[in-house]
Design a protein around this nucleic acid. Sequence first.
DNA 1: TCGGAGGTGTTCATACGGGAACAATATCAG
DNA 2: CTGATATTGTTCCCGTATGAACACCTCCGA
Lengths: 153, 153
Amino acid sequence: MNTSDRPGGTDADGLLAEQLLRLTRRLHRIQKRHLEPVGITPAQSRLLRTVAHFGEPPRMADLAARLEVVPRAVTSLVDGLEAGDRVRRVPDPSNRRVVRIELTDAGRATLRELRSARRAAAEDILAPLTVEQREVLEGLLSALVDPGPERGC
Amino acid sequence: MNTSDRPGGTDADGLLAEQLLRLTRRLHRIQKRHLEPVGITPAQSRLLRTVAHFGEPPRMADLAARLEVVPRAVTSLVDGLEAGDRVRRVPDPSNRRVVRIELTDAGRATLRELRSARRAAAEDILAPLTVEQREVLEGLLSALVDPGPERGC
DNA sequence: TCGGAGGTGTTCATACGGGAACAATATCAG
DNA sequence: CTGATATTGTTCCCGTATGAACACCTCCGA
C-alpha cells in the first residue's frame, strides 16, 4: 500500500530535509570559493545585488524584508560592505531613524565582477541537471518558498 | 534557438540558488521551533540520529564523514549533547587518539521524542507539495548532492 | 503639548558551519 | 630504535542567521 497522493509523513521527508541541508552547505562553499577573488562573502554579494535592484537607496528594513532575514543580519553585512567602501550608510533627512544604503562606485564595480562569479558558482552546483530539470526544481522550490504567510505562526 | 537541453547558465540559476538559501533558512527555523520542547538544536538532533544509526559507537571522524561536515563541527555538537547527558565520549582502548561516541539512556529517550518532532517539521515545510512532487524533488536533490566522485578536487 | 504606542536600527548572546594551526598518538622507513 | 609522516581530535577566528533587549525617533490621541 502506497500513500501515493496525500502527504502524510513518509520517512523520506526527513531525507529530503537532509539533502536540502547538504546541498545548501555545498552551495555556500562553492560560492565562497568563487567570490574569494572578488573580496566579498556570499551573503555580502547577495546584499549588494539586492541594494542594486532597488531604484532608490533602500532602508535596512527594506533589505531585511527582501532577503527574508532579520534586520540584525543586515547590519553585519552592511558593516562588512561599508568597511570595503562598497556601500555607504546615508541618513534619511525625512526620518532620522532610517538609514539608507547607497552603492559607491567601488560597489558598482564589484557588482560587475560579481556577475560572472555568480554564474560560475551556479553552474558549478547545478551542473548535474539539464535545463528542464532546473526548471522543474525551481518550480518546486518556488512552491515551497513562496507559499505566502498563511502558515500559522 | 533555445538552450533547451544543455546547461548554459541562464540567469534563473542565480534565482535557484536564492530559493535554496531561503528554503533552508526556513527549514532551520521550523526545525528549531519543533525541537525546542525536546531541548536540543536541529544539528544536535541530526548528530544524535547519526550516532544511533551506527552499529557501534562511532568515532568523531565517522560522524563528520556521515554528516558531511568538517570534524570541527562535530566537536561542538558532541559538546552540547554531552552537556545534556545524551551522549558520552568514550576513549578507544586500541587507539588513544580516537574518541567513540556512545548514546546514553537519556539520549535514546530523546531519540524517541525526536521522531514525531522531525515528522512534524518535515511536514510543516513540505506541506505545499504532493507526495509525487516530493519524490521528484528528492530525485533532483539527490542528483545534485550525490553526483558521484567524478567531481574534480 | 505631552506622553505613550510603535517603528527602526544596533548591541548582546547563541547556534551552526568552514579553514588553519596544533597537540597527541600511531605508523613506517631507515 | 629513532625520526619523519600521517591520523585524530581539538582550540582559535570568521561568516551567517536568529532572538531578545535596548536606544532612538515619529506620530497620534488626550
